[in-house]
Amino acid sequence: MSTNNPLELIDEMPTPTHGANAPTSKRLSRRQLVVRRFLRNKTAVLGLLVLVVMALLAVFGPLISAWDYRDVDRTAFLSEPDSRHPFGTTQSGVDMFALTLRGLSKSLVIGLAVAVISTGIAAVVGAFAAYFGGWFERIALWVIDLLLVVPSFLIIAIMMSADRSGTNQSGFDRFVSAAPQWIVLVVLLALFGWMLAARVVRSLSLSVKEREYVQAARFMGIPAPVIIVRHILPNISSLLIIDATLNVAAAILAETSLSFFGFGVKPPDTSLGVLLGVGARQATTFPWLFVPPAVTVVLLILAVNAVGDGLRDALDPTSGSGGRV
């Protein structure tokens, strides 16, 4: 049996292509393997690169920009892009480049954080509900159904704008007034965004739970949380990744509509959503108000999708694209 027919099996680790003649018998941990498979996917690497550049711009952008997003250039209201303002200025004379950078940093944080947190909650609640069943599952489903029928937009709007300066502050009130506004927004968006995914995760986990390898793990004496993290979640990771990538776009959009009504990010602070909302109305007459944030959003979402696809293929050993080249 030790003599494998090399023709029948897709050779996963062709020796010559990787490293300085690394022997095939060198054992790689799961993480190393996933990283290696991910790095083979050029589109995904490009997407990751774009994300990294965006993150760097968001953090260090103010250093390269001549203007701050709060500065008003009283000599240039609504001016076209020129050497002083590479992306032009707004009606109130704020530099568009500085605004885009600021918006990018907000949207990047909100989009990614909301996506990761809400998908994380969905994964944990859905998988645990499916695995343990019984009362835990019923309560989880009640909470999910309850949150689904609650008008989340209204609640977030009320919570974001409520007056919390009264004397009898609750713990939540203190958290909201102490924490930066964007964190509150992230928490609230994530809190109301995981339910549908959790239901899907639960139903997928129910089928994975019945697989023999989960039973095998149970009979080995492996504790339930470890089984869920090691066996169930990786096997539904395709769904989780798709959910997370969609959530990035959804969170940016949700933040936009909240901001439009004045409940999300408040001026003078800005986000890509706010910029898009303002710029879209004048897109044909003053395109420089619209094009920079729009291109940034599109790039951001394309990059997230590319990374998501790459991650999915890297985690799934049956996908050819992850391995063969």
């Binding site: 054992r27 095998a216 492996i222 470890v226």
Partner: peptide
């Protein structure tokens, strides 16, 4: 310990052979 009928279903497709065999040891 148990050996299952269908060797495809009883081995987690997302784990390498090492991780599969090492799993009970780790546990």
């Amino acid at each position: 310990q148990i050996v299952f009928q269908d060797p495809m279903a009883s081995l987690d497709p997302r784990m390498t052979v090492f991780d599969l065999i090492a799993e009970p040891l780790k546990a």
